[in-house]
Design a protein around this nucleic acid. Sequence first.
DNA 1: ATTAATTATGATAATTATTATTGTTATTAA
DNA 2: TTAATAACAATAATAATTATCATAATTAAT
Lengths: 134, 134
Amino acid sequence: MIRKHSRQRDSIKQLLMNRTDHPTADTIYTCVREEYPNISLGTVYRNLTLLTELGEISKISTGDGADHFDANTQRHHHFICTRCQAIHDLQMENIDSVMEVASRHCPGQIDTYRINFYGICEDCQTRETDDKRS
Amino acid sequence: MIRKHSRQRDSIKQLLMNRTDHPTADTIYTCVREEYPNISLGTVYRNLTLLTELGEISKISTGDGADHFDANTQRHHHFICTRCQAIHDLQMENIDSVMEVASRHCPGQIDTYRINFYGICEDCQTRETDDKRS
DNA sequence: ATTAATTATGATAATTATTATTGTTATTAA
DNA sequence: TTAATAACAATAATAATTATCATAATTAAT
């Protein structure tokens, strides 16, 4: 299955590399349309799936609506605000030891893992304080 | 918002408490229909959402298709087979230290976290070996 | 026990997120 | 330049979930 180059795919990947939030397919579609007004949402999905399979980007499922995408493929985890749904990258020390702990009672071979941390982000906390004040 | 009791909700929760796999709304619907043949899929979804909000059950999003549900509300994590999609509960030692590690660079207050471990389960590994043999 | 108030239900329509189909266009290698 | 084919845009289809609404079940007060 030889791949051909495509401007649309490049544009999608570039967009994703230039931002640290983690847009959904639909948001990416809206943005890429500024460069390619005729791009189809199907093309966005197709390429996001392809790039994910190739390991060039990764998919984040928060369990709340649409999937999000991330061009940072190094192992890292996410903090998800349960109020505004924003997803923040979490820079953190290596904790692969959790894999070993998990392995001890695991009915299978663990290849990888993902951690989602949930809470209220600083912006929402600030906003809350402001709201009370006014 | 006072709640009224409902037999259907009881049945859904009971079903979930009697099994350790983690059925989807649709599977739950099929099973509960044996007791309540006229129950509607909407009722299943409504009650699963309600029970989740009340903290009596929890929702598992694997990032692959439909959400799954779990009546075990104690903090635990999951091993997801990337071949057969089975979800296994992972009994494991307390690793809340990861929250502290994460907190150090986290732009907000962490309330909770979820870990999904991914890999091939023993059943699928065995099946693979058998397939090669035959 | 009867009634009144209201939540929950079943049936079904609507919505959201995503994938599949198809005829056309762009990319690549010869 | 052309031939082969991957990728495209447009759009239909599907899957998962939520919303609507008239009726039934539950609860609290008589």
